[in-house]
Amino acid sequence: MKAASLTALIEARAGKIPAALVTDLDGGMQTLVAPDAPDGDLPIGDALQRFVEIALADDKCMSVDIGDRRYFIQVFNPPRRMVIVGAVHIGQVLAPMAALAGYAVTVIDPRGAFATEARFPGIELNTAWPDDALEGIDIDRRTAVVTLTHDPKLDDPALKTALRKAPFYIGALGSKRTHAKRVERLREAGFGDADIARIHAPVGLDIGAVSPAEIAVSILGEMTELLHRKPPREAA
């Protein structure tokens, strides 16, 4: 790789700008596809350009054959995002765990006593009301939203806003009973079964998690399953 390409790639990642590095595996010629990238020595034809667009959209590196050449497209998308509503105890462990797992984490809580730098060192905090805070964040299909406050005043506006967008995961802390009441409120607010079914509640995989850290593991586990697990194969 050329030093100039590496510099441009690192800058793109720091600026959270998607980039793709395309390599001709036979000779090693390369071109970085990113805004302001230096000219590469590998020409990107129409066919290759289409694969680059697919790879970026699918968030997947791929090896492609075009004619008698093999190319590798390495995708450098910005990190997935996790928005945690509730700067509570579980959030204190979920936020750093999610960061380790590669998510860009934002914790939302208008209660100043909870959302403090001392409780969330190095984590982006937002003290706006959850629906306002979520409106200001690009909630796309690479984003997860998890509500942890237990308080309908805070959780409900967040869930309603999340349901109007397309995050890949929406999770809500609370028992089955708490969730049943939440479902009633959401129905009254006009949300249908299909919307409500998008909410993972009780949040996380059912692994008997008890402590905040264990619950955080179950939440990350559920999100990971949703992202990567292939549908089960038909029995032969």
Partner: peptide, 16 residues
């Protein structure tokens, strides 16, 4: 756990 001491990694591309 108000004085948690978990070392927080950078939030962009952690460990990568």
């Amino acid at each position: 756990m108000t004085n948690t001491t978990i070392k927080t990694p950078p939030t962009t591309g952690a460990l990568d």
